[in-house]
Design a protein around this nucleic acid. Structure first.
Lengths: 411, 411
DNA sequence: AAAATTATTGAAAACGATTGAAATCGCGTT
DNA sequence: AACGCGATTTCAATCGTTTTCAATAATTTT
């Protein structure tokens, strides 16, 4: 009452109201003492009007009036709390019942499980991950998945990861280093528990993968690796496969064997080249520099390389391609040039893409145990996740030579 | 001192200690009154020894002594708090600085950004999602990704989703309904902001997709849809494509045209069959029931269907396959039987798989704008995520007939 | 039947971010 | 020198779970 005299503290906010008097004066109540009269505007905070209560000398702003409706976001999925309040028990009990904790009364557990089912409860993986500091998610980085090579590996990977309770985030980098780096960041941010990766053809440094190591996130590389990181690896015996592929060409009577080689920053590229060279050497065949051309695993660069080989003054009598897609492009170009396969040109690829069996002539190639690569890789990773004292290990799987018409010369 | 007499309350925990006296007695101090002498073991709670203080009649257990070291889990990624304490400011300030909030001092912001970079800060998406009730993640469910059809769509999808700030979780169901259902659950649990899906060939009911609708999570179906759900859809004009494919066969002089049809629970299956029937009708060709056989889109069932057609007493002079993989299997079987393509048997597929251009003879087919399907689908989804008043809409994209040797008869 | 144990349940503090509201810091004005 | 006010910054509550420790109920032992 005393303060009613301080009339100048009244103010109008300009909004029409339905108050019986004045018709345009909104009362502001002090958040602390409840005073209504001795309130004055006092500046702006973060775009909101601030008030000052003279009585209790208190600055405040008007709380935004959010109804419980407004406040709760429109999308609401049932939580552990919903179950708890439906059952009039604490959320700890619900949590324990759901987790299958041993010291929960059987009846309680049953009730909780029933209610969870009834309310269609799905645990919030975000909250779970936050609480446990584990996401139960592993990341897979592959350079592409247009060819069926990596998809098959991914399927194998999922077959191991899912039963173990892990989800999989698939990232494909489109053979772009930049995207690959972005992918590593996404996986870091997603707090994956581990990562398996096969790098792009243009990846030369593994700096962006060291993030994982620094953060203590296990990493396993497969298939396409490059040097400089002390991690577990799952590979196929590229050297051996290449050797046997070239040996096969030699046995077919080829002597001028070319190699459509892969990028040398990748072990696959290096090892397959090495196998090629050693096979030639062991069989006392000369190595011609002009018969070794490189590609970066893209379709266009493979085509260019193939053309370069076939346009040589003295073209090769056979080509060992770094992988099937490259070999297939070679077949197409040879055919378009009217070169007869395998008699004028025998061809061997690497990895046994499904297409290689369909094309004509069928492509001789080295099959890789894709499923097994995926499974082994993830198994290594899970071991490291569960027990971080494990030392990096390397598994090398064997390839299998599949002979088809592209290299089989009639004697 | 008084309580020193109650000697029997002392106990030994069996561990050797370096106490000057006794050499094997660990003192337990009451958590409430600090008493050391009048403490007795009193049962086990959750596997931990419980004690009882005689003096204040209080039951308690020994708090596990976690050093800050032990407590922090071995894997630690930098958090907003790390930045805050490094800079001696509050975490709210850091958060606002990182978000680019306007009312942050420029120097502060710069310092925060620097420190964030220096500490290699990556926001914890789990925490972020929890706080904002949005995961900034969308889920993609596809039946398979061995063929390059879905991978191309996924790439298109990512090209729209990523720039918009969304990550993508890819789930493949391996054409198994059970896996598809599991996938929907994973996506629900991951609190994705939206889902785009293409169902398996065996999916007849969409009950498991209603979860999303109930939870208010936008859903857009593409390509393989089935009836019964009021959602946005992105399709190609299967009817039109089929009609034109069959029309092309008719124009090549075929009169006994068979259809290796897809499952009729899917719209693709239905519409392509309808287009086939209408084309025959419009050109006054008879429809023979025996010339329509169904497959479930797997390789083996496609092979069985193809065999069934080719083994008929009066085999067809041409086959319109529900998709390229089915048509390719048909080609292979026909070739193995010595049937000449296209003269004895003309073949048309649907979807223009890369393989279709490589096989011999090249497969005539209807190309779908895969990239565009992916982009449009995700665009629809993003619209619904941002603004949930949007009504379901349907986009139908055109196909393009690509004529290759498998159907081109010399006149 | 009191005491000791065991079996269950509850309360509260993390986890790492966002965000509404309050608190401080300066600096011209009275 | 106190005020008024904008510019920043800090505080504290939340999001949905887990998990530690305490509390209460039930059951055995003395």
């Amino acid at each position: 009452m005393i303060f009613q005299a301080t009339f100048f503290y009244y103010f109008s906010d300009g909004e029409a109201t339905s108050l019986p008097f004045a018709g345009k004066t909104t009362m502001i109540k002090c958040n602390k003492c409840g005073e209504v009269d001795a309130i004055a505007k006092s500046g702006i905070v973060r775009g909101k009007q601030r008030y000052h209560c003279k009585r209790c000398d208190y600055y405040f702003t008007q709380p935004s009036l959010l109804t419980p409706e407004t406040h709760h976001q429109r999308r609401h999925q049932t939580t552990i709390m919903d179950i708890a309040s439906a059952l009039q028990i604490s959320k700890s009990t619900v949590s324990r019942a759901l987790q299958g904790h041993s010291d929960i009364n059987e009846n309680t557990r049953k009730a909780v499980l029933d209610m969870a089912h009834q309310l269609d409860y799905q645990p919030n993986l975000l909250a779970l991950g936050l609480a446990k500091s584990r996401s139960y998610t592993i990341g897979i980085i592959v350079p592409e998945f247009i060819n069926s090579f990596f998809p098959y590996i991914i399927i194998g990977a999922q077959q191991v990861a899912n039963p173990a309770g892990y989800h999989v985030i698939i990232c494909q980098s489109n053979e772009s280093l930049e995207t690959e780096i972005a992918n590593t960041n996404v996986l870091m941010a997603s707090r994956v528990d581990g990562v398996v990766a096969s790098v792009t053809a243009e990846t030369k440094s593994l700096d962006h993968f060291q993030k994982f190591q620094r953060a203590g996130i296990p990493l396993v590389m497969f298939n396409r690796i490059c040097d400089g990181l002390d991690v577990s690896k799952v590979l196929v015996d590229d050297y051996d496969g290449a050797y046997r592929g070239v040996e096969h060409l030699i046995q077919q009577g080829c002597t001028r064997i070319a190699h459509l080689a892969g990028p040398q920053n990748l072990q696959v590229g290096k090892q397959r080249l090495r196998g090629y060279l050693d096979a030639l050497r062991d069989y006392n065949l000369p190595v011609y520099d002009e018969l070794i051309v490189y590609c970066n695993l893209t379709k266009t660069s493979a085509q260019a390389a193939a053309r370069q080989l076939l346009d040589l003054p003295t073209p090769p009598d056979s080509i060992f391609g770094v992988n099937d897609p490259a070999a297939i492009q070679t077949i197409l170009i040879a055919k378009s040039k009217g070169i007869s396969i395998p008699n004028d040109l025998a061809i061997v690829g690497f990895s046994n893409e499904p297409t290689s069996a369909l094309i004509e002539p069928g492509l001789t190639t080295l099959a890789q145990p894709l499923d097994e690569i995926g499974k082994t890789t993830v198994q290594f990773l899970l071991n490291e996740i569960e027990d971080d004292t494990i030392l990096p290990q390397t598994e090398i799987l064997k390839t299998q030579l599949i002979v088809r018409a592209s290299s089989l010369r009639r004697r």
